[in-house]
């Protein structure tokens, strides 16, 4: 907690409130001359012209907050397979037995105020992590089968060997049906009835690979 500064009388007898001044000044002046995050990003991408570019470079050197933001940006942009389609990692899945995926983020609906049961409310994005891989799933209405759902997904971090994906009843090892993963890591499962399933991700030699348990397909 800040040590209070004593209030002092000014020449006209009014009381100057130092703490109030500190609070207001801090609120007013916080990062007043820092470039906004988008400009910082455009600077990183080489889109800022002179002389502003030079000013930002100097500012990053002098401002600890912008230096921290810029370091974080560089680190984030340097993450692999971020700007491209997933890179192949040969043979990794062959070494995996049952790898149970961990849910990174609960289902996120596309619209905060979607009416329950509406197409928008059905739609939900989920992210999972399994070893070196991340799987993003998107559950939405199957337009060809309106009473059923489709599951579209993206797998990052794999793809050297052909991969099949399917839904199985919980705990089962055989999928009800399978689809292939394409070169870009995408897949789509259509005509999925509501219920709870395990999603199985396997390499073509059928060695068990990744299991996403308890995937709920809503009504």
């Amino acid at each position: 907690m800040n040590e209070p500064i004593k209030s002092t009388d000014s020449a006209d007898g009014s009381a100057f409130q130092p703490e109030a001044f500190v609070n207001r000044a801090a609120a007013w002046l916080f990062r007043y001359d820092c470039p906004d995050s988008l400009e910082l990003g455009e600077y990183y991408l080489g889109l800022v012209a002179e002389p502003r570019r030079v000013w930002i470079k100097d500012h990053i050197g002098a401002c600890p907050l912008c230096a921290s933001d810029f370091a974080g940006l560089k680190s984030f942009m340097a993450q692999t397979d971020a700007n491209e389609q997933p890179m192949a990692r040969p043979g990794i899945l062959d070494k995996i037995q049952w790898l149970i995926a961990e849910l990174l983020q609960p289902p996120q609906t596309g619209l905060a105020f979607a009416v329950r049961g509406s197409d928008e409310a059905v739609r939900a994005l989920r992210a999972y992590s399994a070893g070196d891989y991340e799987i993003t799933l998107d559950v939405s209405v199957d337009s060809a089968h309106p009473d059923h759902r489709q599951v579209t997904g993206l797998i990052l971090g794999a793809l050297d060997t052909p991969i099949t994906i399917g839904l199985a009843f919980p705990g089962e090892v055989e999928a009800l049906s399978t689809v292939s993963l394409d070169d870009a890591g995408n897949f789509i499962l259509t005509d999925v009835a509501s219920g709870t399933y395990d999603l199985l991700i396997r390499s073509v030699d059928n060695s068990p690979s990744i299991r996403i348990p308890d995937l709920v397909i809503p009504l």
Partner: peptide, 19 residues
């Protein structure tokens, strides 16, 4: 970069002192 920007701005608003 826009992804990073939206997250950073959210945190900047959290860090902003209030009077």
């Amino acid at each position: 970069m826009c992804v990073n920007s939206t997250l950073i701005d959210f945190m900047r608003r959290q860090d902003q002192p209030t009077e």
